[in-house]
Design a protein around this nucleic acid. Structure first.
Lengths: 140, 140
DNA sequence: CTGGATCCCACGCGATACTG
DNA sequence: CAGTATCGCGTGGGATCCAG
């Protein structure tokens, strides 16, 4: 895979397999990272992984989310082309949200990160404890 | 556990048996995603990729970051064990920050995500245009 | 040079009430 | 059921000043 060791020279053609956050694209990347780091976005995406879901269905499946945030998150996802929105003209109304190929791709990319998080979570926690102990109480 | 390789064969139901983000771990994962989605964290990490850097050096290398945020970001990274902080006892003071194996691992995991972002950025932008046009002024 | 302390605003987000 | 509208709080984060 792409190595992480040496500085690559300024390169305008960065869409190759190994391109890292050059200053020119920092904004672009941060926009995506913002979405991913968003409080609810990935949670909604993951909830939609197994198939289409209705609005209330999602709200039930994601504990703690408010109507407001569910609506906003879904709208943004839809605008980004990461979910489809299908409104069935019937009474009572039924709206179904589903992932797109794009968001499934994103899901695949993010999955390793989730794994990493679960895998190194305790390591990070341990580091935090160590740091706090070191700076807080210099040996009691 | 359910480890997923990026070089996994393209499969329609790839994330099937491996359930990510169960409710129990949602919090753990979101903590990490929060860091990654943080405005400056990944930018600092990437800037440190090529070797240790001093405080002011980082500030120069990352346009737009304030002292406050640089300090906070570095402190959090240090607490998480993602960077080392080496203070040289001399005048004027010199402090060097460097990545740890942990953060290098994270960097490798995030890299594909960055690639994905660059790769699909225009696709997302196009979707946004289409959505706006569709809802705002009855198609073009 | 390397930060810490403060002020302050903008914004994310939750709670609640209302509509088609 | 599937949203929209409004208010209010907590906090992320920039600007500025101060200190070791």
């Amino acid at each position: 895979m792409c190595s992480v060791d040496t500085a690559r020279p300024t390169d305008d053609r960065l869409l190759g397999p190994c391109s890292y956050l050059p200053t020119e694209h920092a904004d672009t990347v941060r926009k995506v990272l913002d979405r991913v780091g968003d409080k609810w976005t990935m949670l909604v995406v993951v909830t939609l992984r197994d198939g289409p879901r209705r609005y209330t269905d999602l709200q039930r499946a994601i504990p703690g989310i408010s109507q407001r945030m569910l609506t906003l998150t879904l709208r943004r996802l839809h605008e980004d082309g990461l979910v489809t929105r299908t409104a069935h003209a019937e009474v009572p109304p039924r709206v179904e949200y589903a992932l797109t190929p794009l968001s499934r791709g994103l899901l695949e990319i993010v999955a390793p990160l989730v794994d990493w998080a679960l895998e190194h979570h305790d390591e990070i926690s341990a580091n935090q404890d160590r740091t706090n102990a070191a700076s807080g109480a210099g040996g009691r």
